[in-house]
Amino acid sequence: MKKILERIYLGIILLFMYAPIVTLIVLSFNLSKSRARWGGFTLNWYIRLFSDRAVASALMNTLSIAVLATIFSTIIGTITCIAMIGLSPRLRSVITGVTNIPMINADIVTGISLMLLFRFLHIGSGFMTILLAHITFDIPFVMLSVMPRIKNMNFYVYEAALDLGATPFYAFRKTILPDLMPGVISGALMAFTMSLDDFIITYFTKGSGFETLSTLIYNEVKRGIQPEIYALSAIIFVVVLTLLLINSGASDNIIKEKK
């Protein structure tokens, strides 16, 4: 009896979480423009979406910013994590503290603080400012997933490699890097997802006339929802869901390997 009640509770919460998303995806195939009536199946909104140039350019902006921010933040984050091994405990805790700031701070404060900086420095173009902002909030996520690997690392293998005549770089590449890699990959995926997903910080740092998918959707929604937006939302949901499932699958495998 208790089991059944528990299952029902889980079911209701899952329904609450996913039914709205499913509804949205269903509506993206609805021929009728009305949200209240099913007018038959259509791919019309998807076709309209793909021929919309504003959407195409926003998509390009979103993807190029996400890819570049992921590359830069992964490199900087990983290097910093490796450096943490050799730093004094005090500097290490300073870095940890500063890195925690963007994660704890409200996005709106992070967004306006960066906006003030960019206005002060007269960095005007939307692409550059958003990219810098995204790298900034992505680095903590990379470090968060690389750091545990560093902590659990066995450095004796590295020292053994050196004793056996390997050059430091070769030893690093053969012993430490493979151990770090799962953390680096999941950090990169995390950074990519966060960058793809961000609205608030992008909104404050973009300047006028430059749109990403998130800001485009926000503008459209304020004007009234068109079915194309449902199509766009459905695509984003599916892509992000796939990315996340890959990522959680990857980390599950890591857990299994360890056991």
């Binding site: 919460i13 899952l14 979480m17 996913y18 709205p20 998303i21 509804t23 949205l24 509506l27 009305s34 949200r35 209240a36 009536r37 997802t193 966060m194 997903d197 609205f199 998130s214 959707i217 926000y218 929604v221 929802i225 937006i229 449902y230 939302s233 984003i236 949901f237 992000v240 869901l241 996340l244 499932l245 959680s248």
Partner: peptide, 28 residues
């Protein structure tokens, strides 16, 4: 249960606009 954490919150809010509006899905 945790996945939606990383799904665009604008879109998740948008779904409720659609569901709740006067002649929206829930009222239908």
């Amino acid at each position: 249960f945790i996945l939606p954490m990383w799904m665009n919150f604008l879109l998740r809010t948008l779904t409720w606009m659609t569901l709740l509006e006067g002649k929206g899905v829930i009222n239908t």
